[in-house]
Every structure is written in C-alpha cells, then in structure tokens.
C-alpha cells in the first residue's frame, strides 16, 4: 500500500512537470505499441508488395511503403517492440548484475573488492561498438547478442553507483541497529540495503533507456544487430538510406521515431530523477 501510494506520488510528480508529462506520454505510447504491436499494426510488417514499393502515405498505408512494398507504419510499430525488448532486457540485466556486483564490492574486504572494480574498469575500457564488433566476429550478428553486449557495457555503470550507494548507507544507524539485533548480512542486504539504494538505480535505468535504444539502432544500422527481415528502427533507417534517391520517407519516418523515443525517454528519466531526488529540482 505504501509502495503503491509512493509510486502514485512519483507518477504525479513526473506528470506535473511539462517535460515529464510529454515524456510520460511518449513512453506510454511506445510501450503500448511494443506490447500490442499485432493489434496496433495495420499490416503484417514482413508482407511484401513489390508492385507498390515506395508508395506515399494513403488510407491503406498511413506512412507509405518501403523498397519492398512493406507497410512502413506497421514496421515502425514492430520496430518499437524490438527497441523495447532490447532496451528492457539489457537494462534489467545490467541493473541486476551491476547491483549485485556493486553491493558485493561494498560488502567485502578491500582484497576482494579490488578484482570487482578492476572488472568494471576493464569492461568500461571497451566502447560498446568495439565490443559489439568483437562479439559479432566470434558469434555472428543477432538480436540476443546486441542485448548481451549492451548489458555488459552498462553493467559497470550500475555497479559503481550501487557500490557508492551501499557504502553511503551500510554504516547508517538503522543498519547498525539491525546488526546489534543479530540480523544476518543477507537479511541486511535484501531487506535494508537494496530497498534504500533502489531509487537512484531505477532513475539511472530510466536515463539509460534512450541510450540503449540508440545503441541498438546504431548497431542494427551497421548490420551488427537485428537481422532482416525483422523490423528495427536501425534497419529501417539502413534500408531507407540505401534507397534514399527513390524515397526519403522511410529514413525520415524511422529517424523521427528514433528521435521522438529518445527525447521522450530522456524527458521522462529527468523528470523521474527530479521527482525521486527533489534536491536536484531547480538546481540545474
């Protein structure tokens, strides 16, 4: 009940800001498109109609068709599903893995902490693109690989924040009280530390979402991500780019979707951060 009312308060705080309301609306629209894509789409996104390639917007094809006569609107909708699948999987994996490692690093002795921090440094030293190129060379391109690469590159980000948060609260009086009462380390971590550091990490995740969406689109654009014929905003831009002289619409539509999604998630993330940590509100 407390949690629900807390979430409701946060949602109201996000929606009360103009940027937050806009971000929330965009995020909601993308989530609906992703979750209900078979219902929201008007056509099979992979259905070809070669004779009607590069058709302009019409009642039949709201955003026109691409170089294979596929319905652009439907591909855009299914592209949202791919973007959200990749983003949510990668962020969740990085959040869980990073939090566990960060908490562990803050809870163990300096001798054990060091290897974890070195691991974070090693992973951070690889830009996601370089890591993706290496992984593709070994395993071949796939959507799953994009998710894993993005999750791996984000993991130190969450790990460091989790470690810093844990270090900040581990000696707090209420934790000391728990220890004196004989609570185990596992209980302290699960029941006290994690709930107390969850807020900043969730805000961080929401801010990282647009980054993941653009990384997925970028990797797919250069052929390292989602495989054809699966629709992703990156592959839509790539396909459109190859046929730019025939029609500018596919590139324009897919780029706009990517831009709006990035903006929406960024506004939402910032509003969420302001709502969760009021100290930052107006401080920028």
């Amino acid at each position: 009940m407390t949690i629900l009312s807390g979430s409701g308060r946060t949602a109201r705080a996000v929606a009360s800001r103009p940027g937050g309301a806009l971000g929330l609306a965009v995020v909601a629209a993308i989530l609906v498109a992703a979750l209900a894509s078979p219902i929201v789409a008007t056509h099979d996104p992979d259905a070809l109609d070669i004779l009607h390639r590069f058709a302009g917007p019409s009642a039949e094809h709201w955003l026109g068709t691409d170089h294979l006569g596929r319905d652009l609107y439907s591909r855009l909708v299914f592209g949202a599903r791919v973007a959200m699948e990749v983003a949510l999987f990668a962020i969740t994996a990085a959040l869980v893995g990073g939090t566990l490692l960060g908490t562990l690093a803050a809870s163990v002795s300096a001798g054990w902490e060091r290897p974890i921090l070195v691991l974070f440094d090693v992973i951070s030293s690889f830009p996601s693109l370089v890591l993706a190129l290496a992984a593709v060379a070994v395993f071949g391109p796939s959507t799953l690989l994009v998710m894993i690469v993005v999750a791996a590159t984000l993991l130190p980000h969450f790990g460091r924040v989790a470690r810093a948060q844990v270090l900040g609260v581990r000696n707090a009086p209420f934790i000391e009280a728990e220890r004196l009462l004989g609570a185990s380390e596992t209980r302290i971590v699960l029941h006290h530390l994690l709930p107390n550091i969850a807020g900043p990490l969730i805000v961080l995740a929401s801010i990282d979402l647009p980054v993941v969406i653009t990384v997925e689109a970028g990797l797919s654009f250069i052929g390292l991500g989602v495989r054809p014929p699966l629709a992703s905003w990156g592959t839509l831009i790539y396909d459109g780019y190859a046929y730019l002289s025939d029609s500018k619409l596919p590139v324009a539509v897919a780029s706009a979707a990517l831009g709006i999604a990035t903006l929406g998630f960024t506004l939402f993330g910032e509003a969420l951060r302001d709502a969760v940590d009021p100290r930052l509100d107006g401080g920028r």
């Binding site: 992979d46 070809l48 070669i50 294979l68 391109p141 052929g223 495989r227 054809p228």
Partner: peptide, 20 residues
C-alpha cells in the same frame, strides 16, 4: 528477402544468413 517471402508461400521457411 523477396526470395524468402516467395519460398514461404510454398512451405519453405528460409532464414537469411547475411554476411559481410
């Protein structure tokens, strides 16, 4: 992609293995 779609209509499910 066109070949894949055409093959699909006769019961052949083709996956594209796009390689550099």
């Amino acid at each position: 992609l066109v070949a894949r779609a055409l093959l699909g209509e006769v019961g052949i499910t083709a996956e594209l293995d796009v390689q550099e």
